[in-house]
């Protein structure tokens, strides 16, 4: 059974703004019956460019319904410009988070909003112009690249969780891996050319990493009977060794990526990659 937050449950059981507006300023329709989820969003926009009303109809699971419902609440009263900047993460955050495997529901919400805004503006969305990579769910390369960039995806599994691509027959897995590699490399290259605000010397970097591990990471891991030791820092690659309970833990990879790497990226440098010593 999925672990849904109270907020998801609430929006699923008592969804807000169900229905269709009579004469909407914009309509966005995404998904299909075959895909297992679909959303039709209608919005009303006034002369000042403010979304005054929004309604949805959704076919899908609890998190799809909840994502749609919370989306309508978020965008009501928002300007079209601000709404256009809404990310799927904001939708998921408004629900107190979604299970990883259900992140595509929040992506569907954002896509429907984009489609509705494009319809209101009378423009055609560029996303549909890409080449279809995942035949099962009709996901294009442009959509996949965008998800990788926006949500900082790092594995084929991540891509499936966020876009559904690869979740069917699995034939496009190689292509997804290729897109992932290319996009991650491109992102790294872009970062490298950007002047960083505060360039750290290697020594400073190591000191900072040590500091964050000692001060924050180690005490948290110790609570669960675990531990961590810094082994090496080579450029952006930080090699650590998990100790105690962590070294035997099934979810040590999650600990490493979702916790240790996140902390170090936040506090030392965004480009760091944490790896476990073999």
């Amino acid at each position: 059974m999925w672990e849904y937050t109270d907020k998801v449950q609430e929006h699923f059981i008592n969804p807000k703004n169900v229905g269709e507006l009579d004469k909407p300023s914009g309509t966005g329709e995404v998904g299909s019956l075959a895909c297992g989820d679909a959303l039709k969003l209608t919005i009303q926009v006034d002369e000042l460019g403010i979304i005054t009303d929004a309604k949805f109809k959704t076919f899908g699971c609890a998190s799809a319904i909840a994502s749609s419902s919370v989306l309508t609440e978020i965008i009501k009263g928002m300007s079209i410009e601000d709404a256009a900047k809404l990310t799927n993460q904001q939708i998921a955050d408004a629900l107190g988070g979604l299970p990883k495997e259900k992140m595509h529901c929040s992506v569907m919400g954002r896509e429907a909003l984009e489609a509705a805004i494009a319809d209101y503006r009378g423009v055609i969305l560029p996303m549909a112009q890409g080449n279809v990579v995942c035949e099962c769910f009709g996901v294009t390369d442009l959509e996949i690249i965008r998800a990788i960039r926006e949500s900082n995806l790092r594995s084929v599994e991540d891509i499936t969780n966020f876009t559904k691509a690869g979740g069917g027959c699995g034939k496009c897995e190689d292509r997804l891996r290729e897109l992932l590699q290319q996009t991650v490399q491109a992102m790294a290259a872009e970062k490298a050319t950007k002047p960083t605000a505060q360039r750290l010397t290697t020594l400073q970097k190591i000191k900072k990493i040590e500091d964050v591990i000692e001060r924050e990471i180690l005490p948290t891991l110790k609570k669960d009977g675990g531990g961590i030791e810094l082994i090496d820092v080579d450029g952006d690659i930080v090699t650590v060794s998990l100790r105690g309970a962590c070294s035997r833990c099934q979810s040590s990879l999650t600990t490493l990526k979702d916790y240790v790497e996140k902390k170090l990226r936040e506090q030392v440098a965004e480009t760091l990659i944490v790896e476990e010593a073999r």
Partner: peptide
């Protein structure tokens, strides 16, 4: 038809 199983199950679960 036209509704999704997980949503049905969760309502039944209530």
């Amino acid at each position: 038809e036209y509704v999704e199983g997980e949503a049905i199950l969760l309502h039944m679960n209530r």
